[in-house]
Amino acid sequence: MMLDLLRQILGPWYLQIKFLHVLFVAVWIASTVVAYTYYLVPVFKAWRRNPHDQEIIALRNWTMERFDQGIIFEHVAFPIIILTGPLMYVLGGWTTATNWLLLKIILVCLVAIPIEIVDYHLSHFRGNKRRLREAGDAAGYERSIQQHWMFFLITSPPVMVFAVLIVFLAITKPF
């Protein structure tokens, strides 16, 4: 009943919703690529090779705080994707009989959603570096920086592989 009403009201807007979905997927995937590749990673590698160098630590901290702020684009895009995706599923009359779509949804649930939950926590909530610095919590600040680096180490390979796979499945619909 509720779904029928939703289809009736939003059904004619399917393509516009799809446009929003694709646009924000692009933002979600690409908004941090340059900052990550050419600012964050080189500085963190330098720190890992010189873990006690105070100049590198100062730059590492500054870069990490800027990244916490810059990732807002990605974290605004993600809820829009999570909202428009299921909406398209309902409006388009899709079912789990469509193999590529089922695999795509499973990958989003297994990879993207858990990663983003941790990322929100590390970037904006209790792991936010600026807030910890302003609170004078030096130990918490360092711990949060290191947790965030461990998060990047663990999530970078799956994000790069499975985000591309998710887009590939959506575009080519291979099976």
């Binding site: 089922l102 663990i154 390979p157």
Partner: peptide, 21 residues
Amino acid sequence: VTLYINGGAFIIFALIKYLLH
């Protein structure tokens, strides 16, 4: 992580395909 993602995706996919279809 490999077991979690690949194993998880395979098992969930197989279960849904079998149970629903």
